[in-house]
Write a protein that binds this DNA or RNA. Structure first.
Lengths: 250, 250
DNA sequence: CCTCCTTATTACTCCGACATATTATGAGCG
DNA sequence: CGCTCATAATATGTCGGAGTAATAAGGAGG
């Protein structure tokens, strides 16, 4: 049984009705409106045309449009009130750490400043997570990290399998912290990192081999050395930011 | 002249839900289902009854029920597929940092372990934020912090106004970091902290005056001393955790 | 035992009507 | 002239039903 994945090219090919199999209509509408908002096409304070007008313009029923709006409302992007209409909320109300919102943010040309902020957050959270992982990890955690490391060596970051292994490695570390809140944050940051990594690949080949950095983090966690793990992870993040920044400047 | 039968009265009058004004019906349904999921009434893997059955049981239309499901889907709590039904997703897919989800998590008796994890995250993020705020704050930031500090002194944490001032203080610090991602995280953590603070008050009077701790953080940020700001904030969080833990143990 | 096809079930989409909440308007009055 | 309060206008909210499409499950054929 072939488990086909939906390629990015498919939805990019049909910008108007970006609706592939498995993707619901209201999901597609939410995706379109979400990217439009994140890209600045609709600015905070703007009021969307009424339900009837907009749903007709999009050629969809009012129900589908409303369900899409509920999704955006749940993510803090918009708010609706009778008679007043649906307006885009100020940016600080947006749920920027929502994985789907992050995907929308990176759908177009990503804002360099926002990427910098995400890496700053990553530089705060991941070293601290690595320190705790070094103290709490068990054999299963170490095995998951080592497997991911091996997979990264095999496929390199130029392939989707390699990037998946990279995410697995970081997820294994976060999992070893035994902290739900940290793990959820990892899902968000991991998604963002994935987008930026993909972006790096889009411009040119990765200038540096990231495997040794990951190996250092693994060794420190395996040795139970929290300080070394935090330091190694901090270095990893800093270098990743450097790579991404140079790729975006070019 | 219209002889209307009880339509949405049942849900509205339902004791626990208390659908307040300004709160929509689908929002109330999402709130109810959300709290039921967070409280464990519906466990991950459980399949909800079909749209028709459940909407009739709740005495609401399918539209309202569906829009509520879209909200839960957007927050990663459930996923729906034709023929398979709507099932509760595993916990690691939940958007636990979504402010609304956090509210649902604290609607019932909060899980002590989850609270500990949230404070651990706070202990990671807020000191780092304070360090950066010390480096980047301007006069407006300092004024906002000082105003919040004054308001905290006036009202104390026993009043809603005082707790709002507490949130304002922390938000001012996060705002001074000039980092969107950090600010969003602050909204989440702030919401959670608000719930726990409220919980502390519910059990007994606050055993210690938190104002001096906040003042120390302010002084360090005003002086531009990043290390001192981080250390003071770390101490503040640790003490807050201690208070909350003792309040919950009792 | 596996593959392919059929079928039944379930969510998904659409439609049109009515109810409700909020803003805007303007009449009446101090 | 400016304020208050009732009234009307309008967009969102809620409803019920009909029909479509997708998918898991079970059966036919290899």
């Amino acid at each position: 049984m072939k488990n086909r994945i939906v390629k990015e090219a498919d939805i990019a090919k049909a910008p108007e009705d970006a609706r592939g199999p498995g993707r619901r209509l209201h999901g597609a509408i939410a995706h379109r409106l979400g990217t439009d908002i994140l890209s600045g096409k609709y600015a905070p304070g703007d009021i969307l045309s009424g339900e009837i007008a907009f749903s007709e313009e999009l050629q969809v029923s009012r129900s589908a449009y409303r369900e899409a709006i509920q999704v955006l409302t749940a993510k803090g992007l918009v708010a609706s009130r009778p008679k007043a209409g649906t307006r885009v909320l100020p940016r600080d109300r947006w749920n920027l750490l929502d994985p789907e919102v992050l995907g929308w943010a990176f759908a177009g040309e990503p804002d360099i400043e926002f990427v910098r902020n995400l890496f700053e957050l990553r530089a705060i959270v991941e070293p601290a997570a690595a320190r705790r992982a070094a103290a709490r990890r068990d054999k299963a955690d170490l095995k998951a990290m080592k497997d991911a490391l091996v997979a990264m060596r095999r496929h390199t970051l130029t392939t989707e399998a390699g990037r998946a292994a990279d995410r697995d490695f970081h997820n294994a570390i976060l999992h070893a912290t035994r902290n739900d809140a940290l793990m959820v944050l990892s899902a968000s940051i991991g998604a963002a990192v994935n987008w930026t990594t993909q972006f790096k690949q889009r411009t040119r080949a990765l200038p540096r081999n990231p495997i040794p950095d990951h190996a250092r983090v693994y060794d420190a966690i395996a040795a139970g050395d929290g300080d070394a793990a935090a330091q190694a992870m901090n270095q990893l993040v800093e270098l990743a930011l450097e790579d991404t920044r140079s790729a975006m400047d070019a």
